[in-house]
Write a protein that binds this DNA or RNA. Sequence first.
DNA 1: CAAATTTCTTTACGCGCGTAAATTTCTGTC
DNA 2: GACAGAAATTTACGCGCGTAAAGAAATTTG
Lengths: 343, 343
Amino acid sequence: MSGQKIRNMEEFAAASGISRPTVSKYFNDPDSVRDSTRVRIEAALDQYDYRPNIYAVNQNRRLTKNIGIVVPFLSDPFFAEIARKLETLVIEAGFRPVVLGSHGGTEQENDNLETLRSLKPAGVLLAPLGRASDKSAVETFCRHVPTVLFDSNIEDIGEAFIGSDNISFVDQTVEYLCRTGEPPSFFEMRTPANPNANKRRLAYLAAMERAGHAPDVISVEGEGWGFEEIGRRGTHDAFDAGSLTSRSILCSNDRLAIGLLAACYERGLKVGRAEGSDLRVASHDDHPFSRFTCPSLTTAAHDYDAVAEQAVKTLFELIEGGRPLNDRKELLYPARLVLRDSA
Amino acid sequence: MSGQKIRNMEEFAAASGISRPTVSKYFNDPDSVRDSTRVRIEAALDQYDYRPNIYAVNQNRRLTKNIGIVVPFLSDPFFAEIARKLETLVIEAGFRPVVLGSHGGTEQENDNLETLRSLKPAGVLLAPLGRASDKSAVETFCRHVPTVLFDSNIEDIGEAFIGSDNISFVDQTVEYLCRTGEPPSFFEMRTPANPNANKRRLAYLAAMERAGHAPDVISVEGEGWGFEEIGRRGTHDAFDAGSLTSRSILCSNDRLAIGLLAACYERGLKVGRAEGSDLRVASHDDHPFSRFTCPSLTTAAHDYDAVAEQAVKTLFELIEGGRPLNDRKELLYPARLVLRDSA
DNA sequence: CAAATTTCTTTACGCGCGTAAATTTCTGTC
DNA sequence: GACAGAAATTTACGCGCGTAAAGAAATTTG
């Protein structure tokens, strides 16, 4: 890093003794220039630390190197974690990730999509809000920008959906709970924000029927994304109302379970599979905090890595193909049962 | 939203019957044009939903409307939450936030700063990694971009620092614990990533001395940002080694405390202030999950809002002033003690 | 109503780079 | 050493917008 200030590619080209168009070629693909020229450019490059003005670059490209990553809630460690994985993969592919969180709000999700459109991204990885999504806004967006949905599906929107197989999640937890004790009740929000929740309830009902057990669904009230508090409050209410009598509970997701465990603790109930416990609790998602609950939470883990990798791979196929897929792809990955102390 | 496609400001100006330079003025400041013209432009605006190409706009502005927001770890709900608050404030001020997480890595932090420089932001709100920060890289960055540090301070770097007053945090928790029971031992990481941790230890020592109690610091091993596991592991180790005998524990931060509570639960120890408890635990930060631990965690809460608002306010003063502050500002906000069940 | 002032229009240039076309120079091969 | 093909250079234009200057039009002032 020395020498005088370089203001633009013109000056940098002059300083490195190469013509500007060739330097431009180099920045678009270092392998597209002769070895000897690449060496000269790179020598100049660390003498005068210059980098192309990204605004000028993107103005002249039809499609930029930006990849949008949108998740419903960045404060949820689950989404923060998958966003991080996607980010890493996108960078490895030589693109620039732009991570946006919708904070659980329809308006914010629409704003994010609009922001992305103005960034002219090469493609977008979108985990939609679900029920709260403005479907027509999302659909319009997807018609203009190659988009792969992940985590939560919206029928026929986007070029593909990559997610987890909710049936596999529930089948494994239900099978495990039935095999090792009392058949579970299902604990969920009555009006879940996320479409996966509905699939999980249906999968629970089906699994219980197959096993010849009577299902029991406990639906608690509550709106929004404060799942832990909804689960905690709902648990107390259900106990008070006498609707929670089962000694085996399967939660729709870990964040509800965290609230449920807190409520049980507050009521002096002992949760676990050990002798002398009052009830067992299992759940789904393998939330980053679920190993630190008291007791640690038995749950079904997403195949984070597979979902992230497949979503990115699908998107880049889409981008390179240059045209929509002939038929919308839906790929679901099975869960991995994680046995801990709660069940 | 109808009419034909508008490709650029030229076409939009023609469609609205206004000259392009005037339209340009409008977009830079709607109040800078006559009322009657503004009405005509806005009428055209929702007829042909056009918006200026942000790349072309930013190419010609010396400083863009971008504000960088960098936090050490986006997967930590604490940072996700404060980033969200900052984001909101920045949008309200008419700027575009660009949120980046450093994932706990020096290299990623440097990458983020470099990314930001290429975005030519009007200013940056930076919560540095702390001990792991590449100080000279951060300093160089701050010389080129108006930067306000928050959460964790690096001496003399950046135009200002807005954070929490660690002494106030520890003073309140120590005072409370001493007043209501046994004086606490202090539980921390031996090599904390964050400079606040050191300040808290010093504050603990000072507070104990003032109160005439013998301090007792339990430092656990562990590197990185997996604080919960470090706390859990460290707690077991400390019990096994017989170095944890106190019935009153003050954790450096909530994430460590979450791990400590998990370990206590695993050992069958009852934590709380209620009769018959084995020990009391308090902590600092009021992490979003700390009300759902078992038992819920007594802690000292950051004044999130004040820190966020002050950081943004300071940055905009800096930007509008157009020049560095004559003396570096350091503003610290006191904690608010949050009493829950753990102590 | 004329003068003063504000606002708008017209014209024109520049930002930094992508990219195409034509030409020149370089590379490797027989 | 001549030659084909690859790679680099020269030249030139365009992207969409900011912005400056000068004049025309609209508005406000007295």
